[in-house]
Nucleic acid binder design. Structure first.
Lengths: 342, 342
DNA sequence: ATCCATGGCTAAAACGATTTAGTCCTTATC
DNA sequence: GATAAGGACTAAATCGTTTTAGCCATGGAT
């Protein structure tokens, strides 16, 4: 049972392939196909269950109605939620999404871009890794729109991005901690050169400095990206075992680190917030339900997805035109959600 | 800056398109292309950054090296983890994955299958919704292998599936509860006709019956699939407010319901396990980290993904052959992870 | 009778690959 | 000297669409 093709329809309906194509693409009226023929073709197509081959269509038209979404890791709650929001939004614009995970590996990211490019996706939404600037410029050179999300390249401001204000988010959290009287604030972050994490780190340092609190090196723990769960736990444990003495608060700079932190806090039976105030960048079901509930800087995930998609569609519409609309960069705010942990 | 095509390479290298194709597909030796020409072509291809167009290739060969993955909702931790595992496994076999979410909607599932079929994916891994049997048989009729995961159709045992033993899992959990002395065991499940959930429900009923415990209707709460978060919370709250009196344990039949349950338990300040023992089907970070830790029936997610992919690849290999290998259905076990909540 | 529109369709090229069946040289074989 | 047998390539068909250009009636207008 082979698939039915347009010529099968044409044969059965006793018309030419072109006529079938016109009917299927609602160009029948423009092409002045008669009422009867239109109906005939439509009936035959329905009876035979005809579904146009998108490979052939894409090959001919150069458009696949597909966009590529590259995230860090689809099994992470943040990216999974983001992906769903983008998938839903894409559907509204009649686009299909193909996702893949970089695992934060530059080489893998490059491969993924190549793979998507070979599959002729019409546009990209990318959570970039380091050093992807050139690769992305190449895509733009081929006239394929790209929107960055979550991360960006400060040196390439011609690549549009949908971001949250990382600096402001962390600064707000820090100010709140300080205002509540915490002074010995530790930080747990991930080892990376990427700007969005640097922004978060800078906010931490700047706020401390603004309040004349020395930012001792010992209070900042940087977890290497590829350390396994056990190793990372140990690192965090080493830091948090000082809670109650030379640390009175901790700021986790990512969702994943926060969960790790909870694990350590539970293990060491640290009392929160008495011994240690806790705040995390990016929310998670756990933070809402843990006892005590954990305060977070919440990113508007749905909105990031929607905005990224609408920015992309905008560009897709104008693709091929001379005057490429230079949109202003989109910066959303990450709000503090105060819970019991501070 | 247009993309370079095979004919661009041919022109620049001064050879025919066929020759380039042979070189690019490692058929040069078989086709007795000379060393020099091979090198020449390879160099030109590298210099020009040639990447074969997969649409064209797929159109010609009928193979896209892509598989379609349909899950219920990619933002759910279970499916997100499963998706990642399948993505990783697919990569090993040199396949790309396209995912989509059904949101448990039959009509949407049908549309997704159509969409993937139009995009000529080579095979499918599907978390089915109700009444998808016919649609799936059609795919098989077109010689496209399909593997079901997580759910199945008891009336269609010719559709291969990778499943966990839902009945045994729940039965084991129930036996453990009873052995620990709990008798008034409530159940929270989701409204569905699907067999995997019926299996779980039957295990609950059977174990109660086996121990001569009457299964009162009032102890089973069925949450309608489309009720929003608030509504579902209320329903669960109505049930769990009876904890300590006519209910001494509760079994949540899905991950999502368990999280909902935790939310209610927290709100009502129910003491676990003194007032209420808790167990949930399928694990989640929260259950590991909540205080007290929550016992679960853990599904081997990684293994499901791996098995599904290897089953699919097996069929992909033999696709087109007369003797389709009838593999025995794969049934994995879901083990009890005992934690503090029982 | 000729010309022009217009209506209603179709032929054929094109998209970018893969693959089958040659073509055209050499060189070896009888 | 004719034939066969490689060796090193290439022409052209093909996959399933879309789209441009054009064909052939018919019916006024001139």
């Amino acid at each position: 049972m082979k698939k039915v093709s347009i010529s099968d329809i044409a044969r059965k309906a006793g018309v030419s392939v072109s006529t079938v194509s016109f009917v299927m693409n609602d160009k029948a009226v423009k092409m002045r196909i008669s009422r009867e023929v239109i109906e005939k073709v439509e009936n035959v197509a329905r009876e035979m269950g005809y579904r146009p081959n998108q490979l052939a269509r894409g090959l001919r038209t150069g458009k696949t109605k597909t966009i590529g979404l590259i995230v860090e890791n689809i099994s992470n709650a943040f990216f999974a939620t983001l992906a769903k929001s983008i998938e839903d939004e894409a559907k509204r614009y009649d686009y299909k999404v193909v996702y893949c995970s970089t695992d934060n590996d530059e080489e893998k990211a490059r491969e993924l871009i190549n793979m998507l490019s070979q599959r002729q996706v019409d546009g990209y939404i990318i959570t970039p890794t380091l050093n992807l600037g050139e690769e992305i410029r190449k895509l733009q050179g081929e006239n394929k729109p790209v929107i960055l999300i979550d991360r960006y390249f400060p040196q390439h401001d011609e690549i549009p991005a949908v971001l949250v204000d990382n600096y402001e988010g962390v600064a707000h959290g820090m100010e709140t901690l300080i205002q509540k009287g915490y002074r010995k604030i530790a930080l747990v972050t991930i080892e990376t050169e990427m700007a969005h994490m640097k922004d978060r780190l800078h906010a931490y340092c700047d706020v401390l400095r603004r309040h004349n609190i020395p930012d001792e090196k010992g209070l900042v723990k940087i977890i290497p990206y590829n350390s396994d769960h056990e190793k990372a736990l140990e690192e965090v444990e080493a830091l948090l075992s000082r809670a109650g003495t030379d640390i009175d608060a901790v700021f986790f700079l990512t969702n994943y680190l926060g969960v790790l932190g909870i694990e350590v806090i539970k293990k060491l039976q640290i009392r929160v917030p008495e011994q240690l105030a806790v705040i995390c960048f990016d929310d998670n079901d756990i933070f809402r339900l843990y006892t005590p509930t954990i305060s977070v800087i919440r990113q508007p995930i749905e909105e990031i997805g929607k905005k990224a998609m609408s920015q992309l569609v905008e560009r897709l519409r104008h693709s091929g035109e001379e005057t490429y609309p230079i949109s202003t960069p989109v910066q959303l705010t990450a709000d503090l959600v105060t819970r019991e942990s501070i």
